[in-house]
Design a binder for these strands. Structure first.
Lengths: 115, 115
DNA sequence: TCGTTGTGCCACCTTACGGTTGCACATCAG
DNA sequence: CTGATGTGCAACCGTAAGGTGGCACAACGA
């Protein structure tokens, strides 16, 4: 159990914090696409799409691979799964603290041996 | 299983996308504190702390309760746990798609019966 | 070859975000 | 009452983020 969320995957959260980026992830979850193809499916320009893709790539949420003259992007589920696990552990840590507090409030003056 | 991440908890991700906010969550995970107390523990002003808390509160990651003239803030693990579950499901959906694709690449022309 | 489509990048604009200071008002301790 | 501390705003500031258009060059198709 992680005692304290010292180094949170902030880059991943930041990447996930934009609705347009989720649109792109949505599209990429269906099928790999190029930046140009994506820009035709979302209401922003290719340049904007490219920037979003760069953010997602830095967060390791998407990958790229050439296919002829095209550059296809694809989702990377592992990073997302790892983040989910990390969050879960953090939530559990919070919960543990609150449960201990609740125990005190119950009136059980000596909850075992904690100092 | 969610077929597609249509409505992602973007507010939560945005709230989690700032290191200072994580500092505050860290502190609050230890014990409930007031905005003033928090501002003494982090290198930013009380106003900045207040703004961060407002963001976290909107994302339902923290809660508040008065204690005399003070307003104490506390972490809310459920929202975080729910987000973890949501991410997990999304990652699983991505993984499923990629696994199906991989199956095709394997050469198994008829992957069971999927349409 | 020539047109079309895609990439890679740059300069630019606008707004939201993280941060600050400042002040009026409430509340607790002496 | 008085001082100290805390809350609740509001005004303001600098920077980065999201978005745009444009252009040169590469690669595929007829």
């Amino acid at each position: 159990m992680p005692p304290a969320p010292a180094g949170a995957p902030v880059a991943v959260f930041a990447a996930l914090a934009d609705p347009t980026r989720w649109q792109l992830l949505d599209l990429l979850a269906e099928a790999d696409r190029s930046a140009s193809a994506l820009s035709r499916a979302v209401p922003v320009s290719r340049s904007a799409v490219l920037k979003h893709l760069a953010v997602l790539e830095r967060a390791e949420l998407v990958g790229r691979h050439r296919s002829g003259r095209e550059v296809r992007f694809s989702v990377r589920p592992e990073r997302l799964a790892a983040t989910a696990r990390w969050i879960e552990a953090t939530a559990a840590a919070w919960d543990t603290r609150l449960a201990a507090l609740r125990e005190l409030a119950e009136g059980r003056s000596a909850p075992g041996n904690a100092g």
